[in-house]
């Protein structure tokens, strides 16, 4: 039992790691192409791949809401802004080799140095610490008398309740015997995922930063219009 569980755990981790390796490889190749390609439009399209890959990384980390936001805001809106910027400025669509060789090698040196210092600090500090993906939160039990007819079929079958047995109340002991995927279909059962926690955090603990961000977006909107409009 324990070894089977352990094996399942390992198998799961292997799948995640393979997914991570593929996503990371795509992401890094695209990022490298993005900063080296001479074609401006190609750079924007490589940026799309990088952003999509990082959305995939967010989902891999269990933050599906951040991943969805990334796709909506970055790929949906910011890339379009960039493409408009490229079009409106008639940037040379061909090669952009105007960068001096010296500046290029200095940039590479600075980037490499930054990476080496950060990698050293990270490996020194965090070593081989694992991210523990905890079990999903247990589904809360709510006592609620319901008509047997309204119960979903899987719940009825699991508890041996016939459809015409009138009003029934599922006891806590009965609820505990159900599988999680059946539990969440019991009426009144409360499923709390990551998203509910994010919503709680944004609208209680971080309500002032949230309001400040909305004012910031308005200010940026007005600022962009004022700066870019013709006199």
């Amino acid at each position: 039992m324990t070894s089977a569980l352990l094996l399942a755990q390992v198998e799961f981790d292997v799948a995640q790691n393979i997914a991570f390796a593929i996503i990371a490889a795509i992401m890094l190749i695209s990022a490298f192409k993005m900063v080296t390609t001479g074609n401006v439009v190609h750079a924007a399209l490589y940026l799309v791949i990088v952003l999509a890959a990082s959305a995939a990384i967010f989902i891999l980390l269990g933050s599906d809401f951040v991943g969805a936001t990334q796709v909506l805001v970055y790929i949906g809106a910011i890339i379009v802004l960039f493409l408009f910027g490229i079009m409106l400025t008639k940037a040379q669509l061909g090669d952009d080799d105007s960068v001096e060789k010296e500046q290029r090698s200095m940039g590479a040196l600075v980037g490499l140095l930054l990476f080496v210092v950060m990698a050293f600090a990270l490996i020194d500090t965090f070593g081989t610490q694992e991210i523990e993906f905890g079990n999903p939160e247990p589904i809360a039990y709510v006592a609620e008398p319901v008509d047997a007819n309204d119960l979903p079929t899987p719940v009825r079958e699991a508890l041996n309740i016939s459809a015409n047995s009138g009003t029934v109340e599922i006891s806590e002991a009965q609820f505990a015997t159900l599988l999680p995927e059946v539990q969440r279909r019991v009426p009144g059962a409360e499923v709390r995922g990551n998203n509910a926690q994010i919503a709680d955090a944004i609208f209680s603990q971080y309500i002032i930063p949230f309001e400040a961000v909305s004012v910031l977006l308005l200010a940026a909107l007005i600022g962009a219009v004022v700066v870019a409009r013709k006199e």
């Binding site: 981790d13 995640q16 790691n17 991570f20 990371a24 992401m27 890094l28 990022a31 490298f32 993005m34 900063v35 990088v50 990082s54 990384i57 980390l61 940039g107 600075v110 980037g111 490499l112 930054l114 990476f115 950060m118 990698a119 990270l122 490996i123 965090f126 070593g127 081989t128 610490q129 694992e130 991210i131």
Partner: peptide, 18 residues
């Protein structure tokens, strides 16, 4: 998964951005 694999990926991305 290791924490460091994500942090190193992000460090590499950061360096490329710089």
């Amino acid at each position: 998964m290791l924490l460091n694999q994500f942090l190193l990926l992000s460090a590499l991305l950061f360096a490329m951005g710089v």
